[in-house]
Amino acid sequence: MAFYDGLFEKLGLREWCGTGKSDAPLSMSDLLNQSSGADAANSGPVFPFPSLDNLNESCANLSQTRDVTKGIEDGFLAAKPALKTVLDPITQPLSWLLDSALYTFSAVPWFIMIPILLAISWFSSKSKGVTAFVAISILLLAFVDHYDVAMQTLSIIFVCTGISVLLGVPVGIAMSKSDRLERAVVPVLDLLQTLPTFVYLIPLIFLFSVTESKLYGVAIILYAIVPVIRLTNLGIRLVDKDVIEAANAFGMSSKQKLIGVQLPLALPNIMAGINQTIMMSLAMVVIASLVSAPGLGVNVLRGIRNLELGVGIVAGIGIVLLAVILDRVSKAALSRVDMTHKTH
């Protein structure tokens, strides 16, 4: 006898529930209980919570919790073909971009690639220290034969950060213009930021094939786009009201205001957002190695799976080096942008 039998009796739902309670084990614990000879109802708590599973014991017509998860899965699978026809063409360019970036970064020989990277860090930071640090880090990575994987990781970050900025800045601008849009988008951003990173991967695996690079591209972009949207929105909203009023008083159109006043004044914030976006795509590219993203993450994964301590730690240190490089270069670029605003 289950605990809630009496309840359904009283409600007169006995008939609807059906009497024939199946004796088949419904879960692993049932099975264990059965095999150990104990009655499930007696071994349970005195007053079990009226959960789906507990109610089901008294009323077979009620669904069980596993039916709920099954329902979600079925629903998702049913929607999948439709989603795929929409999403596949939209995201296809992402695959091409990622594949060609991966190809380019590995095809260009190291003695050309390293100077190019150094030149980039020099022109964005204009700092000898930062550039020297980048040089040492890359040479160190190359010395322990991690050059190829590091370049793979870097190329993925380049593509994903680029797309995040390209999509995120306009969304941020639109949000700053409309309070209603802001109210709608902020919860989505909160969700994207709090959802455990592994959870992104589950529906994406169903949607895209693991052989396609857009699978991890989408995962990284979804995760990394949040700060650039947030900080673009914030930066534009924080622009001095007096300056905006002056722009209005002199008859600027909204386009002139956006390009001539709001974006330049929000630039330090936007750059801070881009810095965060870079760091977050680096974090995600490691996790995305679970779904076939190449790069340093694969070695970390190998370290975990095969308990190859050294492999994992070397790859981990490589990731830290990449993170510091990217952070320093983008921060130095950020402080240069700040300088032109508040020259003293």
């Binding site: 007096d242 300056v243 002199f250 004044l265 508040k342």
Partner: peptide, 19 residues
């Protein structure tokens, strides 16, 4: 157009473009 051509304004907090 009216704001551009017929009126100009000076502000208490200057409201210059810092960049």
């Amino acid at each position: 157009v009216m704001r551009q051509t017929r009126m100009s304004m000076v502000f208490q907090k200057f409201a210059l473009l810092p960049h």
